[in-house]
Design a protein around this nucleic acid. Sequence first.
DNA 1: ACCCATTATGACCGTATGGTCATATTAAAA
DNA 2: TTTTAATATGACCATACGGTCATAATGGGT
Lengths: 213, 213
Amino acid sequence: MEAKKTFFNLPEEKQKRVLETALEEFSEKGYEGASINLIVSKLGIAKGSIYQYFTDKKSLFLFIFDYAVELIRKTLKQVKHETKEEPTFERIRRSLLAGVDFIERHPFIYRGYLKMMFEREAPFRQELLQRIRLFSSEYLTSLLLEGREKGEIRKDMNLETMVFLLDAVMDRFLQAYATPYLDSGLNLHRMKRSEIERHVDEIVKLISKGIGR
Amino acid sequence: MEAKKTFFNLPEEKQKRVLETALEEFSEKGYEGASINLIVSKLGIAKGSIYQYFTDKKSLFLFIFDYAVELIRKTLKQVKHETKEEPTFERIRRSLLAGVDFIERHPFIYRGYLKMMFEREAPFRQELLQRIRLFSSEYLTSLLLEGREKGEIRKDMNLETMVFLLDAVMDRFLQAYATPYLDSGLNLHRMKRSEIERHVDEIVKLISKGIGR
DNA sequence: ACCCATTATGACCGTATGGTCATATTAAAA
DNA sequence: TTTTAATATGACCATACGGTCATAATGGGT
């Protein structure tokens, strides 16, 4: 639907190189800012060639987006399954660490997501963002619901508000890890794993017990 | 330093119109994406004219940035002073509502800040972001410190981590208010004031008592 | 009425963009 | 060796960008 058949006839490693190079460009410059000229020159192919693979810039973007979303979805699903029997706050802890690992493994995907969040220009931005945030909040909602049944999560407070708080803190934690100057002095950015884990522990404790009293 | 004398000789209302129009363009498209051509055509002036006011795109951007930062700084300072005698969580509540009001009064400033946060292209981005986040986290730090003295804030937890959590939740709340599809189903975006206040109350309660037990 | 400093103008420049297409190259089939 | 279908190419197009500059319009002081 989005890529031409010529693209799929390419050797798999070339396909991947094309996708990774384009992903890097999009995640650094955003949709409008990304340059097809730069992508092809980085790939060492003629400009016409990339238009043999994809009908236009938009198709290329959407194809990459789908590829990235699928990766995220799989990762979330796996964590959810792996921690099925753990206590709720341990699951939250593990989810955060899984996010850190994901950023480490696919640095451009998370940057691209951040880019999109505050870009008006990306095609279908609204729909695409909704797709991501939806299964992110579905994930947290089910976590908290199961936590309530186990008596680990308070029942005297609105579920949606708790999901909002969780989502906000977790997302910001990952943003701070992926971007400098976003963490109010915690200096999370690319911190080594052991110290990250220490901070995760503290934050989860705060989410659980609050800052009051 | 950043604007030419010609600009300051302009009638004040024209100065303001120029700044507001440019601010709107920058906040919608980001630094690179913003078009001088569009700005002048929206203003109904010749392209050459704006180069009589500012030496180049960068100067225009930095001038607007300073103007915006000063507004934010003043607002924060005022809230801090106005709530001097209130309990800590009431101060947090009031700060959030002040943020909502600020967005209502200066919608493009907050959007511009969000844009910058995830743009690599803006000139001096790192330094500029640091300037904002610094006095934001200084503000929260002093709030919490005074709260500790009054015995309202727990002392058995790292202060920096609490500031991080506060900052994350408050910032995300304002982001969700200013941007659709960012609130995990709370639908804060441009919600009417009375309902906003209800949500603020709930969130502050959660920050205080946590989601656990 | 003249002067003159200040401000406004828009054609123009070099560069870059996304996209096109006739043609060249390749490689397998005949 | 010849034919044929698939792939690669880069000159070229219209458009837009930030920025320049010689010139025109303006308006207060004399």
